[in-house]
Design a protein around this nucleic acid. Structure first.
Lengths: 133, 133
DNA sequence: TCTACACCCTGTAGCAACTACAGGGTCAAG
DNA sequence: CTTGACCCTGTAGTTGCTACAGGGTGTAGA
């Protein structure tokens, strides 16, 4: 399989595949006589794994750990579970941060009276509390 | 006011203040004889504005626009409102993306039976659908 | 056979928004 | 007079790609 085929089979860009190889996430494949990368099914499986983990929002560092763990079939699943839970907690924190942000932004936008910038409540909100320059 | 004072007054790092100056977001202040940056209240106000907008999740590009708009007091507030609304939509999209992610991750984690990696449902979920390498 | 075109290669630079040095200078206190 | 906290410039690192530039390869049609 050439890089373009692998890429489209995994909805990845060709550059990204090469990038994963460069950072050691995807093993360097064999080369053809023309120096083209020749991938096998093991690469396809590996890259699919990476893509799915990325789609779930895992960082590349977490993906790297998950890949290492997944290679040791006899090992306990605890470490995997732990990585996933940490990631979940992270996502939950982000969601609540964004929810707070939305509430605040809702409030700010709601206060807009469509006048001039002079008495724009949005700009006013952004301005400093005490200092008026 | 020296840069350290300005920074701590706005909960910003010194490097970030210099960075904002470098990218033209914060006007270069006067210098002391020792070549130290000497800030006035107008800088404090400006940086406070930037920080608040950033805290609300506006990109630096959006902040730049908001600053330009806020300087033209006679102008209609529409453009400001529009920037804020686009940003709100963006936040809402992010929230729903993350909520979907959380649901999926919840499902994956819930399936963990605490066995070995061999039959770990999390790893299995990440693996490819059809291809087994 | 020529040539156009899609694909492949390497290597480097760019994006956002900072952060972290390295290698210096300045200033007030003890 | 020295210690330590601050200041300066400039550059490189972070994450996860993406986008060239400047080449080589392979195949299909005229």
């Amino acid at each position: 399989m050439k890089i373009g085929e692998l890429a489209s089979a995994t909805s990845t860009k060709v550059e990204t595949v090469r990038y994963y190889e460069k950072i050691g996430l995807l093993a360097p494949p064999a080369r053809t006589s023309a120096n083209y990368r020749a991938y096998g099914n093991e690469h396809l499986a590996r890259l699919s794994f990476i893509r799915r983990a990325r789609d779930l929002g895992f960082t590349l560092e977490a993906v790297r750990e998950l890949l290492t763990l997944s290679d040791d079939k006899a090992q306990s699943c605890d470490a995997v579970d732990s990585i996933a839970r940490v990631h979940l907690a992270d996502i939950e924190r982000k969601i609540s941060d964004l929810a707070a942000l939305r509430a605040e932004l809702d409030r700010v936008i709601g206060s807009c009276r469509k006048g001039t910038v002079e008495d724009c409540k949005i700009i006013e909100t952004l301005g400093p509390k005490d200092v008026r320059a």
